[in-house]
Design a protein around this nucleic acid. Sequence first.
RNA 1: CGGGGUGUGGCGAAGUUUGGUAUCGCGCUUGGUUCGGGACCAAGAGGCCGCGGGUUCGAAUCCCGCCACUCCGACCA
Length: 478
Amino acid sequence: MAKEKKVEAITDMEVDFGQWFTDVVTKAELIDYSGVKGMYILRPYGYAIWENIQAVLDKRFKELGHENVSMPMLIPESLLQKEKDHVEGFAPECAWVTMGGSEELTERLCVRPTSETLFCDHWSHVVHSWRDLPMKYNQWCSVMRWEKTTRPFLRGREFLWQEGHTLHATAEEAVAETKQMLEVYAECCENWLAMPVIRGRKTEKEKFAGAEDTYTVECMMHDRKALQSGTSHYFGDGFAKAYGIAFSDKENKLQTPHETSWGLSTRIIGGIIMTHGDNNGLVLPPRIAPIQVVVVPVAAHKPGVMEKANEVYELLKKAGVRVKLDDSDNSLGWKCAQWEMKGVPLRLELGPRDIENGQCVCVRRDNFEKVPTALKELETAVPALLDAVQQGLFDKAKKNMDENTHVAQTLEEAKAIQEEKGGFIKTMWCGSLECEQRMKDEAGMSSRCRPYRQEHLSDRCAVCGGEAKEMVIWGVAY
RNA sequence: CGGGGUGUGGCGAAGUUUGGUAUCGCGCUUGGUUCGGGACCAAGAGGCCGCGGGUUCGAAUCCCGCCACUCCGACCA
């Protein structure tokens, strides 16, 4: 057929991965551009994905004893500057408010790039006794970082996230919190977003400004690049000291508490797209898909079809499935392409022939398998199919990550693998910044993490040949 | 921040070299026929030509400045 495609075509990811991504986010109606560079409009369908992720995390945070709060959006410059490493890390990308109405402010105000300083300042006022600890706070908000290169979801100047901040009496407790929250992110990625992760710690070079230790979950995208999908920091007592937070312990001795923070942003939606998407568009994991099932009536004008479609819709809705009935007058082909583009995990086709046979045809978005299903069994069959799609997506992503993770014994080998295949490269490392920098300069890869799951590949650092301390995973990152 | 590309109804483009008041396809609206993988007929609506200056009788078109998007690189808690 020489006819133009009616649902807007997207670029194949093999042709141009970046363009494919941009096509998907705009044409699946997740994002629209605004008038300001790097600031994006999250459209209803995109925001609904975020709301579903929020629901999962918010519930988990609260189960673990965290409380939601709301901090101001603006930070006085003097407050930001109290912790030296932190301000050095963030100052270059802060946006500043200098005017109030038509008058210049006496002190300029930073639009929060993150809120450690605000939480610390607040705690310095309200924490006095060991009885006040731990403080386990979280806030859902947006933050601003004046990035030079921007991309929808992956790097915006303003983005939505949650930032958890906690304060503990002891270092042990704070470290445990840091690790626990990383695990919450890992489980969210794996169980809800069908994204396999590598859990680990950042190197000294890659850790958060002002942190003593940064933990991360790293995912592999379809183009074999890495995406840091969630991060959790242990601050020690550095911030607490800088901001004058202290408490009296049980022996009435003045102590400095220990702090953590952890965050996950809408960037994860970019991760979902680049992990599961294909050349037909978006593919959403059923557990967070705003629409899990779309009912598409076939030959809807024929007697009984719409009635049956409505029945099925109501049935599934009652069964707790997020279902949509496409009662538009678009052609069947258009509808199929459209819902595939929008990544709906399961399409349920229902036509006169089906009704005659007491069945419908379920089509899986992950592998396009057509599954004839008896209408009587829908209530149980649909949730089972959704689970199968969820598992199918996870397995496919896991396979991609495993097949594209390689071992290198030398820098030359690492460089060759990176150039030929890309992906994650595991090597031994001596722990020096020099070797890490050389890997970056010569092989173009940054350290993604020092995984929890260590393997002993050899006794020698792949870069300098010196004594190896641990295994590092390297990769090209977003 | 450096290099390349782009900006014209909702989307995609033609028109810019040679200045004369905007064209096409899709989408949209209405009516009708269709409908098991991207339908068809007919009649309509819709445009500050990215923004701001300048040149000119006249600017989408020429000149200056700016902005945004996009790709590559640098940077990126």
